[in-house]
């Protein structure tokens, strides 16, 4: 299985939603990402899996420039993100305003929700609309209520985040991302901070969004869910993409030995002890 085939844009030649070429990042002497090549097509759901420290969250955060990558190019709908090419071909850091323009179609859902605790649920969702996009108040309100309704939280519009459960807070976080009508959503371990019984309500929402055709890149440890919702799964280790393919190729019937090792605990739990290599074809 050639990684390149699984990561590049399809033959239709349309501009991928997100495109990464040779992306690398270091924190001081520590190399966190190396030689990442990946395309995310419109309507796709891509899951990033891998052990802790594999760089998956850093990679996700490079896609909306929450982390500044050091090498390569990240393009959103063809537009270079974070940098500007000089006539000499060098990459120069862009202004905050230009960065904001390029990443406008990208919305993020955070592991720790990152709701603003002193604002109501509704205010949390309208704030990006009124403050960042300058939308009039009443329009923002109706857009926000629509988004909240989409995730089933419209009834709690006037509640404070502290009064909500973790699952409810994360759904508000998803509504906040939806309200700006993004073209792609980045989800950073959306359920990792939730108690087990609250995970499902969030996964339901994500699944339903995928069925509506939302382009999503998700870092997750929920293997069954990743297999269910993704069009493609990317396995990372030590800052590199080691394997990429369909959920069947990567999660259900992995061939790569390191992949098998990584997924063994999950297999043990889901297939009642059958190791990946022995899983029924």
């Amino acid at each position: 299985m050639d990684i390149k085939d699984s990561t590049r844009a399809g033959p239709s030649g349309e501009v991928p939603m997100i495109s990464l070429r040779g992306v690398g990042k270091s924190f001081g002497a520590h190399r966190v990402l190396a030689d990442i090549n990946l395309d995310v097509r419109a309507g796709e759901v891509v899951s990033l899996i891998g052990p802790s420290g594999s760089g998956k969250t850093t990679l996700l955060r490079c896609m909306n420039f929450l982390e500044a990558y050091d090498e390569g190019e990240v393009r959103i709908r063809g537009a270079l993100l974070g940098y500007r090419k000089t006539p000499a071909g060098q990459l120069v850091r862009e202004t905050e305003r230009s960065i904001a323009e390029v990443r406008a179609p990208v919305a993020m859902v955070f592991q720790q929700f990152n709701l603003w605790p002193h604002m109501t649920v509704l205010a949390n969702v309208t704030a990006p609309l009124t403050l960042a996009k300058g939308m009039p108040a009443d329009q923002a309100r109706s857009v926000a209520l629509q988004a909240l309704d989409r995730v089933g939280m419209a009834a709690k519009a006037d509640a404070m985040p502290a009064a909500l459960s973790g699952g409810q807070q994360q759904r508000v976080g998803i509504a906040r991302a939806l309200a700006i009508h993004p073209e792609v959503m980045l989800l950073d371990e959306p359920t990792s901070a939730l108690d087990p019984e609250l995970v499902d309500e969030v996964l339901e929402v994500i699944l339903s969004l995928s069925r509506d055709g939302m382009t999503m890149v998700m870092v997750t440890h929920e293997m069954s869910f990743a297999a269910e919702v993704s069009d493609r799964v990317v396995f990372m280790e030590q800052g590199r993409i080691v394997a990429a393919g369909t959920p069947d190729q990567i999660i259900r019937r992995p061939e790569h030995p390191r992949l098998q090792a990584f997924l063994r605990p999950w297999f043990r739990r889901s297939l009642q002890g059958a190791a990946p290599a022995e899983a029924a074809a």
């Binding site: 002193h118 604002m119 509704l122 300058g134 108040a137 006037d158």
Partner: peptide
């Protein structure tokens, strides 16, 4: 008066 309601955020933000 903890809650900053959507109204306050929106009303003051339109001027930007």
């Amino acid at each position: 008066g903890r809650a900053i309601s959507a109204r306050v955020v929106n009303r003051t933000a339109i001027r930007t």
